[in-house]
Design a binder for these strands. Structure first.
Lengths: 119, 119
DNA sequence: TAAGTGTACCATCATAAATAGTACAGTTAG
DNA sequence: CTAACTGTACTATTTATGATGGTACACTTA
């Protein structure tokens, strides 16, 4: 489910956070579903439990999961998160769009690219 | 011309590379124009010359500048760079667009955002 | 020749990421 | 109750990278 890219310059815990955020936002992991345990996931990925712990702490800080001591980590069902992520994405898209328009692309071309996008 | 953001988590040399790439691609720095010397820019930014050197080496590796020993670094006038950058940007835009469509936005909404963009 | 270029080193420091290991508290299935 | 799970909190250590400080050398130009 989670694959670490060792060519990626970002730290491992950050990659894990990103992957889980995507899985949760896209509904692959549903509300109140249990996350893999810290030790299990660490074993599976052959990395240190502390690294998973750090990733989970960050996911909790951002509201994507919640913790029940002794039972495990669970997916949070907060609808606001989707809205927030939408805003983040659109902001990034508009920044990139601005740049690409400044170096010679036209709005028409750009919009055509998006229209052709398969989802 | 170049400002370092110490809140930015990215390394300084990387920020410098990015800034110069943007300046070159947007034509602010024109072909065969001389870059600030390693020592001068280092003084101006109050950082170590080796850090500038690293940034320039990277810019040269990517084809944005060329070096004449004993004279200085100069902006390369390679038209392919703009094309390459366009492709990079569009690829990123399409990735983000895909995500934002998957979490509930419609193409119409997204396109409207881009239409409203001021450039 | 002097002062400016780039380049190549090397040693050092600072920081963050990651690992390793231990310990403790809560939950649950048997 | 016990054993085997959960998460959490530490501390110490290693590793990698970024950044600095300093020196030296070759080339170019006024």
């Amino acid at each position: 489910m989670i694959i670490i890219d060792y060519k990626d310059t970002r730290p491992i815990y950050e990659q894990i956070v990103e992957k889980f955020k995507t899985l949760i936002l896209r509904g692959v992991l549903q509300a109140d579903e249990q996350m893999p345990s810290v030790r299990n996931l660490a074993m599976e990925l052959s990395i240190n439990p502390n690294t998973i712990q750090k990733a989970y702490a960050e996911l909790e800080r951002q509201g994507f999961i919640y913790t029940v001591k002794g039972r495990g980590n669970f997916v949070s069902g907060d609808g606001k998160l989707v809205e927030e992520r939408k805003c983040e994405c659109i902001q990034k898209i508009l920044e990139l769009a601005k740049e690409v328009l400044e170096i010679g692309m036209t709005k028409i071309e750009l919009i055509r690219e998006i229209e052709q996008l398969q989802v």
